[in-house]
Nucleic acid binder design. Sequence first.
DNA 1: ACCTGAACACCGTTCAAGT
DNA 2: ACCTGAACACCGTTCAAGT
Lengths: 250, 250
Amino acid sequence: MSDDEQYVDGDADLVAGDPMPSARVPLSRDRIVATALAFIDEQGLPGLTMRRLGERLGVEAMSLYRYVPGREDLLDAVVEATVAEMQADDEVVNTPADGWQDYVIRLAHGVRRVALRHPKAFPLVASRPAEAPWLRPPLRSLDWVESFLDALVGEGFDDEAAVGAYRAFTSFLLGHLLLEVATRGADVGPLDVLEPEQEPGADALAEYPTVRRLAGDLSQDHSATEFEEALEDLVNRLALIFNEHQRGHH
Amino acid sequence: MSDDEQYVDGDADLVAGDPMPSARVPLSRDRIVATALAFIDEQGLPGLTMRRLGERLGVEAMSLYRYVPGREDLLDAVVEATVAEMQADDEVVNTPADGWQDYVIRLAHGVRRVALRHPKAFPLVASRPAEAPWLRPPLRSLDWVESFLDALVGEGFDDEAAVGAYRAFTSFLLGHLLLEVATRGADVGPLDVLEPEQEPGADALAEYPTVRRLAGDLSQDHSATEFEEALEDLVNRLALIFNEHQRGHH
DNA sequence: ACCTGAACACCGTTCAAGT
DNA sequence: ACCTGAACACCGTTCAAGT
C-alpha cells in the first residue's frame, strides 16, 4: 500500500488516473456518502468496503465511523441521496401545471434518468428494506409520497384513487427500470473484463430452437420506446382508476 | 423438502431444542442448495454464511467446497432452484390449452405463488446478474424463455410480438412481486424482533399532512386484487401487441 | 472418498492513544 | 477536534493432512 493516498476531489468526478495529492479537505458525512455512491457506480456494490472507501478518501477506514454509524447506515444514506437526486431532476415538478397526466409523465422520466445515471446503485434503491411497508421503491421517501399524493388529490383524485395510483406507479417504475438498468449495469463490473461475458453460445442453444430463432429480436434494445408505451398505458390505467372513483362519488 | 436436516449435537450452539443424532446423510449439491434456500427464507440473505450453512448441515464449511465452487455460485444455484420451482408449479402449464390469455394468467399466478413462498429469496432472483441481458428476471432461464415464446408463437403471435410480450410480462411480474414480497419479507428478520419496526411515528408525520391523512389507506394491503387487476390490464395490452402485429402482416 | 485443522487474506467495528 | 494503530470477531477460501 502506498502511503500518501489522499485523493481529494475538489469538484465532483475524479475519473481514472488522477492521483492529486492535495490540501486536506476535511471529511464530512456528505462527502462520504457522495464518494460511496460514485464508488458503487464505478466498482459495483460488492466492491464497496469501508476500508477501500477510506482509502479513496485519503483516510483510514476507522475515521468514517465518526460520521456514519456503520456500513449498513451508509448504504441507507446512499439510497437516500439517490432518491433525493430524483427529486432534484429538472423535468420533475412538484406541482402539476398541465394536468396530472403531464405530472406523472415528467416524474417517470425524471426517475428513469436518474436510474440510468446510476445503473449499479439503482438496485440498492429497489431492494433495501424501507422504513415502512407503504414507502415503496423507487419513490421511497416521505417527501416523494407526500408530493405525489398531494399532486393527484389536488388534481381531483379521490383519496383511495390517489393511493392506488401511487401503488400502480411504483410497481411500473420498479419493474421497468430495474430491468433496463440490469442490461446496462452488467457490462463493466471491473471483473467482467476478464470473464468473457459467458453468454450462452450457439451450441448451448441447440435445445432451444425458438430462442435461437428469435435471438436477434431478443437481444435488440427497445427499452426507451417500451418504457414510453408502457407509461402511456399506465396513464390510461390511472385514468380508469380516477373515473371509477369519481363515479362512485356522485 | 428439507426435513432431513442433520444437526450435529454436542455443545455447538443450537437454537432450537432439536438434538437429533443424525443418521449421517451424505452431503450433496442438491442438499446444500435446498438447505441454503431454506436458510435464506428463515434468516435472510445476510445471515447465510458458508460457515453457518455448514453448521446447519452438520459439517465444517470447508466441506461445502467439494460440491459448490464458492458462495457466489451457491447463490446462483439457489436462484436456479427457485426459478425451477416456478416451472414445477401445478397451475403452470407449458402448452396453452385454453388460449394464450389463460396461459399467461396461469403463469403469472404460479410465479406469484412461488415468490410469496420465498419472500426473502425472491429479491435474489430479481437482482442477481443474469447470464445474458435478454434473460429477464423472474423468468430468467432458457427453459422459461423457450417455453414462453414457443407458447405465444404457437398461439399465433408474431416473432416480434412474442418477444415484446415476454418483455412486458417480465417487467410486470418483477415490479409487482418485488413490491409485494418486500412488505411480507420485512417482518421476521430474526433481528427485527429487537428493533421495534422503526415506523415513522405520528410526530414525524407532522410535516406530511396528506400522508398523515391517507395513512389508513396507505397501510391497507390490497396486493392480491391489485395484482389481479394489473394482470388483466397486462393481458389487454398483450392483446394490443398481438393485433398490431397481425395487422402489419396483411 | 469424504471431511477437517490450520492458515491466509480480507472484512466491519471498537477503543485507547496519538496529533 | 480529528484521525490512527492495534486488536477482535467473523468471513470466504485453500490445502495438506486425517479417517
